[in-house]
Amino acid sequence: MHAALTLLLLLLGGTLVPVNRQFRPTPDGIAVFVVSNGVHTDLVLPLREDRTGTDWLSQLQQPALAARFGGYQYVGFGWGSERFYLESYGGKLPGATTMLRALAPGRTLMHVDFYRQPPRPGRHVAALRISPAQYQRLAAQVALYFAPDSSGPTVLRNAAGYTPDDFFFRGRGRYHALRTCNDWTNGTLRRAGLRAALKAPLAGSVLYQVRRATREPAEAQP
């Protein structure tokens, strides 16, 4: 019991320790967002970004999606447990058995959600403006977690997600108690050189450090 409590305190304490503390937003940079539903976090990026030549519909190589969502502006990416995602359809909360099984290493999916307009910053949405170089690193990190097969760089797991605008793709990596959806979001920000938490077990952990990045005194970018 004491060991579990100590581990929990260490995990939560990691929320307060910043990584890439020197990061500062780029005033005229590319707008990206961290979006939470209170439990899970997604990264929301421009569907097309002219300065870096990034086009997510092209990268996904899914012609039906390209035809359907070509007029949208943003796309969200989340990573998580296949078991948990697939038992969450219809707004259901997965049962205790699924939650416990998700604590053990298991397969993952990438959740892709198309947005007609950028998210509106608020309680569950934090916005950052980043440089083109930072955006390229961020996009490259996201792309790494799609599991390819012989037919292309992405594999649709299901023909539909929770809504008409979201989908699940086969993901790379294993989900477990110490490697969660929020850790993925946090780690992706960190590896792109953006401010992040040392450890982010909760959605609030990710949002806290992203918001701190916008409040630090401005200084020259490296």
Rank of each mutant, 00 (worst) to 15 (best):
Q221T: 08
G171L: 05
D42V: 01
K92C: 03
R51Y: 01
L12A: 10
A133D: 13
K92A: 14
S205G: 15
K199Y: 14
L11T: 04
E82R: 14
G187W: 04
P119S: 00
T108I: 07
K199Q: 13
P105A: 10
V210E: 11
Q117I: 02
V142N: 06
G193Y: 02
P18G: 05
R101S: 14
Q62I: 13
G71L: 09
L198D: 02
P222G: 09
H111R: 11
P63S: 06
Y72C: 04
L128Y: 08
A177I: 09
N20I: 08
Y162E: 03
L138A: 04
P18D: 11
Y72Q: 05
R68Q: 15
R172V: 10
F77L: 01
R170H: 11
Y175W: 14
A203L: 05
Y162C: 02
T180A: 08
L86K: 02
F167D: 03
A197F: 07
Y85Q: 07
P63L: 10
V75W: 01
R157H: 12
L194Y: 07
L57C: 03
G161T: 07
K199L: 15
Q117S: 14
A200G: 12
F69T: 05
T6V: 14
L7Q: 11
A220T: 15
W79D: 07
R123L: 14
F69M: 04
E216P: 01
D166S: 02
L5F: 10
N186M: 13
F168V: 03
R48K: 13
L60Y: 05
R174G: 06
G122R: 05
Q22Y: 07
P217S: 07
R172G: 11
R120Q: 12
G38S: 00
G13W: 00
T26Q: 11
L11F: 13
A104G: 07
I130H: 06
E216S: 10
D42E: 15
V206P: 08
P153G: 13
